[in-house]
């Protein structure tokens, strides 16, 4: 079985070593972005964002439309430049030079919304190979990466020579993600990777991505509208509102601020809402509840308590 860990590469320390490293892989300092500055359409999308992204972190980024999520992630690999503030990748300003921009493009991989519309090559293989090719890797290295990336997203060898346009929407989405994974980015940023997929498809894509994360130890930022899914996979959640970081913490910490989330127009997990209703009815539930499992266990422990009494 091919795994990414077998691929020899420069500047890619072993996973454990990475997790211990103290410098954040990304540091965002006072990031401000204003669109159409100086025109009547001037729109300030980000207002002084400060964030540190650790190596190996999985982070869910939440916020309603217009909160600045897309603007933020497009800064992370220098697709757009800050109006003010800096982004450091591994301690180095990514907008410092042409070279640093180029480096950021391969070390920070961006998967846009509905990436399947960006496939363009004749075969699945060529599409996935596009990124690594641009990194001037040898044909052998490219081959290893293409096959390993396809495997990560659950695309079988038999599909590699097919035209991507003959495949289903879900398969195309996987191929597009594989194309970015093949560059082995140290930070993988995905904008709504599950949008439009059925429940099984959503689960599969997330499991593929978590498999990639566990294998490589690389950081992953996932922009999503689904609080439930963010909470299931991420250890940390960042909530954006009006171009500012409104919340930053573990899912427990974020969901304990249910009222504020609702005021921002965000959907609170169903189980959090149910917990609130039950407390109103006098059911003594403790702690923050946001998954079915937590609710089940909390209720069963209550029942156990009743029976013992």
């Amino acid at each position: 079985m091919l795994i990414m860990g077998d691929i020899p590469q420069k500047r890619k320390p072993h996973r454990k070593e990475k997790c211990m490293s103290k410098t954040p892989i990304l540091k965002i300092e006072n990031l401000t972005h204003v669109y159409s500055k100086g025109t009547p359409f001037e729109l300030s999308a980000l207002n002084g964002i400060n964030l540190e992204i650790g190596r190996g972190e999985v982070i869910g980024i939440i916020g309603h439309t217009g909160s600045g999520k897309s603007t933020l992630i497009q800064h992370l690999n220098a697709l757009i430049k800050p109006t003010d503030g800096k982004i450091y990748l591994d301690g180095k300003d990514i907008n410092e030079s042409k070279q640093s921009v180029k480096e950021a493009r391969s070390r920070v991989g961006l998967v846009f919304q509905y990436p399947e519309y960006q496939l363009f090559e004749e075969t699945v293989y060529k599409d996935i190979a596009f990124g690594p090719k641009n990194m001037r890797l040898t044909p052998d290295e490219i081959d290893v990466r293409v096959r390993a990336s396809a495997q990560f997203v659950g695309i079988g060898e038999e599909l590699l020579e097919r035209s991507p346009f003959d495949l289903s929407g879900g398969q195309k989405r996987r191929i597009a993600i594989a194309g970015v994974i093949a560059m082995l980015p140290e930070v993988l940023v995905l904008d709504e990777p599950m949008a439009g997929l059925d429940p099984a498809g959503r689960r599969e894509i997330m499991e593929n991505l978590m498999g990639y994360h566990q294998e490589t130890g690389n950081a992953m930022l996932i922009v999503t509208h689904s609080m439930e899914e963010a909470a299931r996979y991420a250890q940390r959640m960042i909530v954006l509102e009006h171009g500012r970081v409104a919340m930053d913490g573990t899912p427990e910490q974020v969901f304990s601020r249910e009222k504020e989330l609702k005021e921002m127009g965000l959907a609170v997990p169903e189980m959090t809402e149910l917990a609130e209703k039950l407390r109103e009815y006098g059911v003594p539930l403790e702690g923050t509840i946001y998954t079915v499992e937590q609710m089940r266990d909390a209720l069963l422990s209550l029942k156990g308590g009743l029976q013992d009494a």
Partner: peptide, 25 residues
Amino acid sequence: NAGVDLPLDALSIDECAKVLADKFG
């Protein structure tokens, strides 16, 4: 499945909360 006797068709959060409050409240 854990042995609590409950109807499965309390779909809305309100209905579900009522059913659960009866059992656990």
